[in-house]
């Protein structure tokens, strides 16, 4: 199997509302993918389809070679899921939840779980419902690690976590994934975290995939240029070839592009704008994300 996840022509409607339109996506083994997108761009829908909780209107999504909405129990055994809000059986205690899950997974690695629980300093009979969100995140992460899955799908893992627990979560995840050569597909609203942990980024736009590429390539090839000219307001438009996005603020024009400075200058010349030099402003992943998707 070449790809751990493979979505082909994925389309989904909620009633009449089109959410995903002909989405194609391939996720290679052994890498960490961070999926980013503004609210309402189909991120959760994609995750729900991958998790098998939603059947796409059309198209196909294969997870570990099987259609995501009818995964066999054996394949589900190889997928670790972290549900939004660190969903857990909160009526159970630390010990009970481990007892429960251990019976479903033949490769259960209890040490991973108990290592993390040891750091929480809570008693084994502590109920999950009496834990903070951060503590619960450690329980869920410990259970996923102990399951020893091939693929980890982590839906908005940072939700409700304070900076300390977020850092802890990322540290453990990174160490575990690198050591065991796992594939991770994660979403988060904290883009700085994705930047820290992901090898590849997938950015979703309105009904479609905007890009999927290694983070290093995105950082190297995606540029932000600035120049000042009071007379070109509205002249430069975003297109698919040279200018990915453009922002006007008084006389300041910000251009986002995958092309080099020379190519952008050449493109501006075709629009009747002559300029000698553009100022390139380095970008974080968050700024690149806003550059790609726009502020509104």
């Amino acid at each position: 199997m070449e790809h751990v996840i493979e979505c082909k022509n994925l389309t989904h409607y909620y009633g009449d509302k089109l959410v995903l339109n002909d989405l194609n996506l391939k996720v290679e083994k052994g890498r960490i993918f961070g999926i980013l997108g503004k609210n309402g761009m189909g991120k959760t829908t994609t995750i729900n389809i991958l998790m098998g909780f939603l059947r796409p209107t059309s198209g196909q999504c294969l997870v570990l070679g099987e259609e995501s909405h009818k995964l066999s129990p054996l394949t589900r055994q190889k997928i670790g899921l972290l549900h939004e809000g660190h969903l857990a059986y909160d009526f159970m205690t630390i010990k009970q939840v481990e007892n429960f899950y251990a019976r479903f997974f033949p490769n259960w690695k209890a040490d991973y779980y108990w290592d993390l629980m040891g750091k929480l300093g809570l008693k084994d009979n502590h109920k999950i419902k009496n834990m903070s969100c951060g503590q619960r995140s450690q329980v869920v992460l410990g259970l996923i690690f102990a399951q020893d899955p091939e693929l980890l799908i982590l839906d908005d893992y940072s939700m409700g976590l304070d900076p300390g627990y977020r850092a802890l979560f990322i540290d453990y995840l990174q160490e575990y994934v690198r050591e065991k050569n796992k594939t991770v597909f994660l979403t988060s609203h904290i883009i700085q975290d994705v930047e820290k942990v992901a090898d590849d980024t997938i950015i979703m736009g309105y009904q479609k995939l905007l890009l999927k590429m290694p983070l290093t390539t995105l950082k190297k090839d995606f540029h932000r240029f600035e120049f000042r000219n009071a007379n070109v307001n509205g002249v430069i438009k975003a297109d698919d070839n040279t200018i990915t996005n453009v922002e006007y603020y008084n006389d300041k024009i910000t251009l986002y592009s995958f092309k080099s400075e020379a190519d952008v200058i050449k493109h501006l010349k075709t629009l009747g704008i002559t300029i000698e030099k553009l100022t390139e402003i380095p970008m974080s992943l968050e700024e690149a994300f806003i550059g790609l998707t726009g502020k509104y």
Binding site: P73, Q77, L81, H83, G85, L87, Y89, F91, F104, F105
Partner: peptide
């Protein structure tokens, strides 16, 4: 009710059991 609160039933549906 605990299974359906916050759609916790999804945890059960992901267990390796039909």
């Amino acid at each position: 009710v605990p299974e359906m609160t916050n759609k916790r039933m999804r945890l059960s549906y992901h267990l390796p059991i039909s």
